[in-house]
Every structure is written in C-alpha cells, then in structure tokens.
Amino acid sequence: MKISGPVAYRERPGRGMPLVALHGIGSNSAGFAELLPHLPQSCRVIAWDAPGYGASQPLAADWPVAANYAEALAGLLDRMGIDRAILLGHSLGTLMAAAFARRWPDRVEALVLASCALGHGVSPGAALSEGAKARIDELQALGPEAFAAKRAPRLVRDPDGHPEVVALVASNMAQVRMPGYGQAARMLASGRLLDDLAALAVPASVIVGTGDMMTPPQANRRAHKAIPGRIRGPLIELPGAGHAIYQQEPAAFARALAACLDQTLPVANSVQAASQGMTG
C-alpha cells in the first residue's frame, strides 16, 4: 500500500489508461484483490482507500457529500500525475465516481458502475435516512467484527453455499471504523446518483448481480436509464452474484467489465474528438 498525501491506495503497475477502482461503504482497497488476476496483466490498476478507510485520513466535514469524495480523488490523481482514467465504482463508490465524472468529464475515459447505490436524497444536516442511521447505530453497538459478521451474508448470493466469499467480505468489512464509516453513511443518505448520471457527458455502463439484495437489479436499471442515451453503455446482469459482485464472481465480473469498455471506449473517443473539434 502507498500513501499519497491524506489518501492511501494500492497499485498494480501496467501500461495504458489506468483503471481506478472505488470500493463500497463496507470495504476497502484490498477488496479488489480477487478481481486483479482476472484483469489483463498489462492493465494498470489503482484501488484507493476512500477517506476514512484503511490508511486514508477522514474528510474534514462531519456530513460530506459525494462531491467531497470526488475532490479527494482528484487530489490523489493530481499527486500521481494521472490526467485521465477509467473509473470503476462499486456501491457507494458509484456515487463518488459519478460525482467526479460530472465535475471533471475531461479526466474520465469511461465510467463503469457496479451495484449502484442511488442514495437517499436527504439534505445534509437533516434527519438521517433510516438505512444510514441503522448502519451507524449497528457499528457503534456491535463493534467492527460483530457488525461485519452480521452484515456480510447479506452481500453474498446463497451465503450458506459460499462461506468462503462471506468470510472474505466479512474480513474486509471488519476493518471499517469511525469517523470514516459514519461520514460515508451520511454521504449515502444525501446521495442523488440519478441526478449526477443525468448530467453526465462521459460514457457509462452498469453491472449488477441478479441476487443483489442491497442494491437490487431494478435500482440499477433506473440508474442505467438515467444515463443520457448517446453515452449509455450496456447494462449487464450477472446471475451468479449478489452485492459483493466482484468478490463472488470475479471472472464473470472481469468479462462484463471488458464488454462494457469494448462498447464505451470508442464512444469516449468520438465524444472527445467532437469536443476538441468544437473548441479547436
């Protein structure tokens, strides 16, 4: 793991356009370890620890919004000298990725959103949504390890049949801590993913597991429909996966990711060329 300023990250060196992976609310950069062997070995992959996770410092605001995480990501990419990247967001990471792409479209080659968290649309500072409050209360009452043991099975399709995946998810989730988790839960409460997607100028695709009970397929279909038509990539539903999609079905997820990029990268190039033509 490397630390750049206040944000820590893991990197697998490679060539070409970097793939930047943004984890969900109950995970961290290590959660992508199962996926890496299924990605092209030539691909440069950067997985961050979101502010308040792993070795990353928490944000200053008690109730941050998605744009605050996007600003932290911009700072990390600046320090790494990365001008443009492919963004892969999972769950809460989809809110961060979409907020970044909306603000800095010239820095995003393509966007892939997995297990989309739509957000609860609560105004910052108002009463927390029931789901966000329950997350914070459970972590404080149970502690990280018991909290992870209780929640991890919900993220896996057929958890009794996949105890090794449940254990993997629980191991990552047991590393969450305050204040980072509380900040992330409040960001989820105020999130408005559909608004950010509707304003996109970057090609975007969606991947979801059909067994996802946390961010179910119908919510991901809403997210996919919100992407403007001319930049809308595929919607891929994986039958063998739950919410922890790239941990439960890493090979299938890698194939879906490749299919999304195969279709959206040419669109990204044409959009970029058109933009340069208008400004040239």
Rank of each mutant, 00 (worst) to 15 (best):
L188M: 15
G26L: 04
R186V: 04
A259E: 15
V165F: 11
S115W: 00
G75V: 03
A273K: 06
H162M: 06
N220V: 12
H162Q: 11
R107A: 14
R230I: 04
P228Q: 06
A126E: 15
A67P: 05
G240H: 08
M278A: 14
V202P: 06
L36M: 12
P58N: 06
R12D: 10
V166N: 03
R255S: 13
G24S: 03
G211L: 09
R103M: 09
Q218G: 07
Y181L: 14
Q276S: 13
F147S: 00
Q247N: 12
L261S: 03
A114F: 01
G240S: 05
A126H: 15
D212C: 06
N220S: 15
G81A: 09
K2C: 04
E109V: 01
A251K: 13
L113C: 08
A273H: 11
L36G: 07
I25R: 01
P124G: 10
A201R: 15
E145R: 13
E130T: 11
D106A: 15
G75T: 02
P266D: 07
L257R: 09
L111V: 04
G229W: 00
A85I: 01
Q57W: 09
A101I: 02
A219E: 15
L19F: 06
P124K: 11
Y9C: 11
N269A: 15
G89S: 12
R232A: 02
L188E: 08
A148Q: 02
A259Y: 02
A241R: 07
A167Y: 01
A74S: 10
M178Y: 13
A97L: 04
P105K: 11
C116Q: 08
P144R: 03
A174R: 13
S42K: 12
A30W: 10
I86M: 13
T279F: 12
V267R: 12
Y181N: 08
M173E: 07
H162W: 07
L87P: 05
S91F: 12
A126T: 08
G31D: 02
W104Q: 14
D195V: 14
V267I: 15
A273M: 08
R84S: 11
I46M: 01
V112H: 05
M214K: 05
